[in-house]
Nucleic acid binder design. Sequence first.
DNA 1: AAAAAGCTGAGGTACGTAAATCAGATTTTT
DNA 2: AAAAATCTGATTTACGTACCTCAGCTTTTT
Lengths: 341, 341
Amino acid sequence: MKPTVHDIARSAGVSLATVDRVLNARPGVREGTRVRVEEAIASLGYVRDVAAANLAKSRVYPFVFILPVNENPFMLGLRREVEEAIARSGTERTRIEVIDVPALESAALVAALDKVAAGDAAGVAFVAVDAPDVREAAGRVAAAGIPMVTLVSDLSQSPRDHYAGIDNIAAGRTAATLMGRFLGSRQGKIVPLAGSLMVRDHRERLDGFAEVMRQNFPHLALLPAVEGRDDPELVETLIGDVLRQHPDICGIYSLGAGNRGLLPVLEAKPLSPAPVVILHELTGLSSAALVDGTIDAVLNQDAGHEVRSAIRVLKAKADGLPVIAAQERIRIDIFLKDNLP
Amino acid sequence: MKPTVHDIARSAGVSLATVDRVLNARPGVREGTRVRVEEAIASLGYVRDVAAANLAKSRVYPFVFILPVNENPFMLGLRREVEEAIARSGTERTRIEVIDVPALESAALVAALDKVAAGDAAGVAFVAVDAPDVREAAGRVAAAGIPMVTLVSDLSQSPRDHYAGIDNIAAGRTAATLMGRFLGSRQGKIVPLAGSLMVRDHRERLDGFAEVMRQNFPHLALLPAVEGRDDPELVETLIGDVLRQHPDICGIYSLGAGNRGLLPVLEAKPLSPAPVVILHELTGLSSAALVDGTIDAVLNQDAGHEVRSAIRVLKAKADGLPVIAAQERIRIDIFLKDNLP
DNA sequence: AAAAAGCTGAGGTACGTAAATCAGATTTTT
DNA sequence: AAAAATCTGATTTACGTACCTCAGCTTTTT
């Protein structure tokens, strides 16, 4: 039978109130008594029943999600997952507030973080912009003792408790290995298509990709990245230009959210031989392109997993509990046409 | 504020006991009263507080895991994950009993399932052997109203509530696509290495693999599968023989747990040109082989995810709650040397 | 018609914890 | 030395649900 506070009280020869004060680090217990209670806790192997405690406290976890306003499918999906989490709030004892901030602007993010630091949130998750002022704001959140998780995009050298997102350097490296292996002995140029290299995840993916290309596939020339701002029309124009300029392109790595511009180009005037195309983010579009052979592989991060993981971690941190590390590692999903969900 | 049973009682003009009887489908409520209460429940949007209910019931979920006694790394890992779940039992309100059965023998599995059907378990998870007698035993478990999840290996046409494992046909197809693409224009033979084709997962992986090879890579000849019974020494002998017999082997797909026999062969006398090697199951061995280039890709299923998912699903079924489908889908992890955990 | 048996509803207690209130002892202040 | 303030510990209530006991009413049995 699991020991309860009553068992501890009996074992230590004190009342429930005293046990409660020791457990919750409240004042009003003499040193000697405190030690006796702590010994009883240790020797009985007591662990707090979080469900009962939450019931007694009528606890809800007020969490804040700071999300960039961004039209790309991934961010829309992320937002949808947060909304599903909100729909589950009733049964999960959470209350999730979403703060919208303009994408890529650190000022608004800083303001949102400072609002959180001043409030009574039990935790905050945010898509980081990797800038010094954001780092400082994160420091203030941490100083306020509020658990903090970065989502999708990490904040380097910051006191965040956890990062719920993929390793983007590894993702880039993986894309490069797939690209190189799929091309085999073919010769030609590779063009990376990014949203903006000001975004940390895009830069990291490109770095990882470039490194492996240089190291393992030196016979393939890596062109400078095309920055399409994840804007379908701009991407369409830029990619069209590049393909005309370099008829010997044999590989395309779309590491951002520019698929809506890229795919029409590929389908409109198919190159011959077809280039190897690797994209990020599984959507209806990319999934269809995978099936019909327009593209070869999709790397994906599961927004639902990221959101649920962020909430689990925030809860655990708020309760001072450990997290199951293996469970919270967000994996890089690799989809070929054969293992689509 | 979330409505409680008190709100329902007040709204329907009845007592708590009546609400309780309606909620828990107990007898002793007049039809008209029952309808009034149900209307109140619906109109207030009441959802039972599972935590409070479990507290009141002092509920523990007695689950049974039926695991095959098997020395291979994957099964050992699965067992370890079940043990970690047992270690968390205290905080998760579970009590997990493990029943060991000899691997691949349906009789012992049937006996274990019948024991479960006769007992008071709140759910059972088992690694299925796909045989008619097992299917019948599963029927008896279902008839006893006990939630049932197949783990790692599914049972076709059975009344299991859920399958916590990967789509093995898709895994085989994925391996074939990787194999074919990695080989590019190379010609030669491909040899599949299985544990036993009596096991459903192995058979399915091979089927998926063979189909894609035949369809998309007809220039590569698929040799008959080598059945190594996941026995390192046997595998070493058999693979050695096959490689001698067919000097033009350019691809090896190890779809079972024979890696401990295969890898030494590959490392001892490296073929030239090196064959493309794709394995299942990420272990210390396969991970190292990936890093040093002996092998090219590893397909993996995460045993920890499978066990945790099985428990979540069993709990949900026991409580009559819905499951988050996307969360419970076990994915086929593809590891290259670049995205190792 | 009286007694027994069912039906329906009310009230109270328990689950494990948190937290407010209360009581007694000790120390400090006047 | 008396009064006030501070410590320390005990008791009690509440959280939302389950379930047990009991009371009043209706129906059936004798």
